[in-house]
Structure formats: structure tokens, C-alpha cells
């Protein structure tokens, strides 16, 4: 997983990251201890989860929630807490993989 680190001569001047978009490249999903599981049937599309997510990890298409961005969701649980119809469950990461299966 560890990428080869660049030497000083290979870094852009001034520490700039050309191309930008660094949060997208940083897969913070690996930090997650609990995984939010979305229950589409219960969801009323109020988008409160999208509004409150601190990591922009609620995926939206045409103003409808379509799921979770697990590459970046850190598992904070704010979405599950704010959901008015309990449509999001927080499941420990270890068992989440099984739950999905």
C-alpha cells in the first residue's frame, strides 16, 4: 500500500499540488471503524444525511440519495444520528462485509 515517496527535486515548487482535488485522492474510508448501511426502502429522501455529512460522502444523483461513498466515509455516524426514519444503521466494519453478503 505504501507508495514510494518522492525526493525533494521531484516535488512541485512551493508545495503546490497541480491538478488539485487532493481529498478525492485521499481514501479516508480506510479510517472507518463503523460502516453506515443505507436502507433504501425506509429512506424518505429528505437529504438530511447529505446536508450533515462532514466528508461529502452521501452520493446524490438528480437530487436523490443513491448510496454511500465508502472510499471517503470515515464512519462518524452523523448521518445515522440525523436520519428521521432510522434508515441508516451503523455496523462494525468487521461484520459489515458479512452483512453485505
Amino acid at each position: 500500500m505504501a507508495a514510494k515517496l518522492k525526493g525533494w527535486k521531484d516535488l512541485p515548487m512551493g508545495g503546490v499540488v497541480p491538478g488539485g482535488a487532493t481529498p478525492e485522492l485521499n481514501k479516508t474510508g480506510s479510517w472507518r471503524a463503523e460502516r453506515p448501511i443505507w436502507n433504501e426502502e425506509k429512506c424518505i429522501q429528505c437529504l438530511q444525511c447529505w446536508l450533515h455529512c462532514p466528508d461529502d460522502s452521501i452520493m446524490i444523483k438528480e437530487q436523490k440519495m443513491t448510496g454511500m461513498d465508502y472510499d471517503h466515509c470515515k464512519g462518524c455516524g452523523v448521518c445515522a444520528g440525523i436520519c428521521p426514519v432510522d434508515a441508516i444503521d451503523m455496523v462494525p466494519e468487521g461484520s459489515a462485509a458479512c452483512a453485505r453478503r
Partner: peptide
């Protein structure tokens, strides 16, 4: 481009 990013011990020195 991103300006002024955080640099941890792995890159600050370089």
C-alpha cells in the same frame, strides 16, 4: 491546483 497543503514528516523536510 491545491496551494498550501498540509505536509507531514514524510514530506515537510523535502
Amino acid at each position: 491546483s491545491t496551494w498550501g497543503p498540509f505536509a507531514m514528516p514524510d514530506y515537510y523536510f523535502e
